[in-house]
Amino acid sequence: MSTGTAAVAAFPVTPDDAGGPAVLLGVDVVEAARLARAVERGGAAFARHVTTEAERGLTSEATAFSVKECLIKAVGGRAPGFGWHDFEAVTAAPPAWAGRLLDEAAAELAASTGAVLDGSAAYALHGASHDAALKRLRPPGDAAVAGAARWGSDGGLFVALAIVYVDRKESARCPR
């Protein structure tokens, strides 16, 4: 289903020169009305297709779709075996460094689009998308990957930003 999203290339970013964790970035900009029509047209089937039971109620279906589009872009597209449930909103907060990086990127995106990105959530990655992120990030050892997102709307646009990262300091505590 096409929602008129803006394609933004994702690329690995290293937050610091001291061997900090690599980060993948994805952005989705869509006309809010078009996104709302897609969600309305799909109804309950759309919600089941895009969101897991555990994440329903954490974000709207429109938000989940747009954020997951960002996460798809960040990991390099829909890998063979991809499913929308590869990404799941969770209640845990991202590490502080990831939150700061996301806040900085959100401020820049807000300045260019006019949309204040005041919604946020952390994301778990599973399945084919988890594996695709590991391939792109190439972390040492058996590391875990996770995601975080910010979103908002203004002037008829819905804007979402997501990062996928490996926190080398925390990967031992969060095996996947």
Results as ranks from 00 to 15, higher is better:
His49Met: 15
Asp154Cys: 13
Glu53Gln: 10
Val166Pro: 02
Lys73Asp: 01
Lys68Thr: 04
Ala111Met: 01
Ala148Tyr: 12
Glu108Asp: 12
Trp97Met: 04
Ala92Arg: 15
Val30Ser: 06
Leu102Lys: 10
Ala124Glu: 09
Ala10Asp: 07
Gly156Trp: 11
Ala172Cys: 11
His130Thr: 03
Leu102Gly: 11
Val116Asn: 09
Glu69Tyr: 07
Ala124Arg: 13
Thr14Phe: 09
Ala105Leu: 03
Glu31Tyr: 05
Gly156Ile: 05
Ala132Asn: 13
Pro21Tyr: 07
Ala110Pro: 15
Leu101Trp: 06
Asp167His: 01
Arg100Cys: 10
Met1His: 12
Gly114Asp: 10
Ala32Val: 14
Glu104Arg: 11
Leu109Tyr: 04
Pro140Arg: 05
Val27His: 04
Glu61Lys: 01
Pro94Gln: 10
Glu61Ile: 00
Val145Pro: 10
Leu58Phe: 07
Ala144Arg: 09
Glu108Leu: 10
Ile163Met: 05
Cys70Ser: 11
Gly20Arg: 11
Leu71Ala: 03
Arg173Asn: 03
Val164Leu: 00
Val159Gln: 01
Ala107Cys: 06
Gly141Ile: 01
Leu102Asp: 12
Pro21Asp: 13
Gly119Ile: 10
Gly57Gln: 03
Ala96Ile: 14
Leu117Glu: 08
Ala121Lys: 13
Ala89Phe: 12
Asp16Ile: 02
Tyr123Gly: 03
Val67Leu: 04
Ala47Arg: 12
Cys174Tyr: 08
Leu125Pro: 10
Gly81Lys: 11
Leu35Glu: 12
Pro175Met: 08
Arg56Pro: 15
His130Val: 04
Arg41Lys: 09
Val23Pro: 00
Ala146Gln: 11
Val159Lys: 00
Trp84Gln: 04
Val13His: 02
Gly99Asn: 15
Val29Ser: 03
Ala146Cys: 08
Gly155Pro: 15
Ala18Thr: 09
Val67Gln: 02
Val145Ser: 02
Ala115Met: 06
Thr59Ala: 13
Gly99His: 14
Ala146Tyr: 06
Ala89Asp: 11
Ala22Leu: 12
Ala111Arg: 09
Phe65Ile: 03
Gly26Lys: 00
Arg41Trp: 10
Ser66His: 01
Tyr123Leu: 14
Gly114Ala: 07
Trp84Lys: 06
Leu24Trp: 01
Gly26Arg: 01
Ala160Asp: 05
Ala89Gln: 12
Ser112Trp: 08
Cys70Trp: 02
Glu104Val: 12
Glu108Lys: 08
